[in-house]
Write a protein that binds this DNA or RNA. Structure first.
Length: 465
DNA sequence: CTATGGCACGGATT
DNA sequence: AATCCGTGCCATAG
């Protein structure tokens, strides 16, 4: 009997560990699917209504203490605020699957986005412009954004950037409106412009789209209201308008190209799993780190279900208890995951603060193993926590979390700088010496590798510049 | 002789 | 156990 109980307990903890590990390795999108399926299959799980902070309108964590407003003021400013935040659910379309749009007109889908747009604009463009347009349109990603920079195009055609911009402008005004933009921001700005010609665009919508999209996507209306000096209700109405009329991903609503969360290539445009910022956007003040959860509110074992168990009998009672155990296990695992993520991110942003404030050159070359030791967890834990996740940096760039462990990024950044300021082509050995002077010790052979990664030609071929 | 690229080994990661 | 990355060693191109 005792033996059996021990075995049971053992299997329970290993199950716990195994599931925590699995959850840890999921990013926000995958976690959402996992939680949805768990919710659907287990009646003992429920999400209770979210409570929001009366001051900043943020969703409160289970303890009911707002991580920003109710934080004791005695906190060390170097100490980051790390908290769990609900997912950007402002644009529900971003996670749609094919089934969500069963009645979507299929006519244009028979041709691809490139030709569809090209057909619309061909007559408006000169021959030369058409060439540029083709180039631009063949470099669109699934979201309908440019995968190349205008500068590259301009250099490729040997023309000023402004001419490429002219063509881009024409493309953006075609259906789907905003296609060919550099990102959601630009796309939505164009859409607003077009809508405003038809009238009925609320005042301030421009400003919000322009400068406060990140607040908007997190439904922090109070912040926006404060900045613009208007009422929260008014912001909410504008938000509703934006949500209903604008589409931050022009390529998707029409084309529903296969969403492929596993592909790392397009990760630039996906929802980040962690958002790093500064209090009041001031690099000298406290860091604010949000770990994104795919739901608002609190996931817990339903209290109704607990009560129902007490009142039921026999076999159904056992089954219900099983459900409840599974539910509480899941909740525990999720908490465990979030706890690990919080500790990891805290340590990460503290050690990489220089990188976050001053730029890539200051990325500390740390290893996952060293972090694991500091946190007292197994290195595979860190590995799982980091893999497949993306982080939005204070400068709004979204990078894979693994970038924090890139041992060569700072070296490569400095190398780029050295090359761009060199007066005569430097040999790898000379570059190595200059790197060494700036505190980067690498082998000469490695300099060559970095050059290759950065697409920089060897010294004797750089003469022409 | 110097500057680089190819290949393989060892440690870190997955 | 399989894979990636920094390095050392060596061959090859100037």
């Amino acid at each position: 009997m005792i033996y059996q109980r021990q075995v049971l307990k053992q299997s329970h903890t290993t199950a716990h560990l195994a599931q925590t590990m699995t959850l840890l390795s999921l990013n926000t999108f995958e976690l959402k699917q996992q939680i949805d399926s768990e919710l659907a299959s287990n009646p003992a799980l429920e999400i209770v209504e979210e409570r929001r902070c009366p001051h900043c309108h943020r969703v409160l964590p289970p303890d009911g203490i707002c991580p920003l407003c109710s934080r004791p003021n005695t906190n060390d400013p170097t100490e980051p605020v790390v908290y769990i935040s609900p997912m950007d659910d402002f644009f529900p379309k971003r996670d749609y699957t094919d089934q969500d749009y069963p009645d979507e007109p299929i006519s244009p889908v028979t041709e691809d986005l490139t030709t569809y747009v090209l057909r619309q604009i061909a007559t408006e463009l000169t021959k030369d412009q058409q060439l540029i347009a083709v180039h631009l349109l063949t470099n669109l990603d699934d979201d309908g954004f440019l995968a190349v920079s205008l500068m590259e195009i301009a250099r490729y055609f040997h023309i000023p950037v402004s001419e490429v911009e002219d063509v881009q402008r024409v493309i953006q005004l075609a259906e789907p409106i905003g296609v060919g933009s550099t990102g959601p921001n630009q796309a939505m700005k164009i859409q607003l412009e077009v809508l405003s010609e038809a009238g009925l665009v609320p005042e301030y919508a421009d400003e919000i789209v322009e400068g406060h999209l990140d607040y908007l996507s997190r439904r922090q209306y109070a912040e926006i209201a404060k900045i613009l000096g208007i009422g929260v209700q008014r912001v909410e109405r504008i938000a509703e308008f934006i949500s209903e009329n604008l589409n931050p991903f022009p390529g998707r609503s029409h084309w529903g190209s296969v969403r492929n969360p596993s592909s790392q290539e397009t990760s630039v445009y996906q929802q980040p799993d962690v958002i790093i910022g500064f209090m009041n956007d001031d690099p000298k003040s406290q860091m604010v780190v949000e770990i994104i959860m795919p739901f608002g509110g609190i996931l817990q074992v339903s209290s109704l279900y607990k009560k129902a168990i007490k009142e039921s009998e026999g076999e159904s009672k056992d089954a219900m208890r099983g459900d409840m155990d599974r539910a509480s296990l899941f909740v525990k695992c999720l908490q465990q995951r979030n706890h690990t993520m919080q500790r990891l991110m805290t340590l990460l942003v503290v050690t990489q603060r220089a990188y976050l404030t001053k730029g890539e050159e200051f990325l500390e070359p740390i290893t996952r193993a060293s972090l694991a030791e500091e946190l007292g967890v197994h290195e595979s834990t860190i590995s799982r926590a980091v893999s497949g996740k993306s982080v939005q940096l204070p400068n709004r760039k979204i990078v894979p979390m693994a970038a924090f462990f890139d041992r060569s990024l700072s070296a490569r950044t400095i190398l780029r700088e050295i090359i761009s300021t060199e007066t005569k082509p430097l040999s790898d050995t000379e570059i190595q010496k200059r790197l060494d002077e700036r505190g980067i010790r690498v082998a000469r052979r490695t300099v060559a590798k970095y050059r290759a990664i950065e697409g920089i030609l060897p010294a004797h071929l750089r003469q022409s510049l």
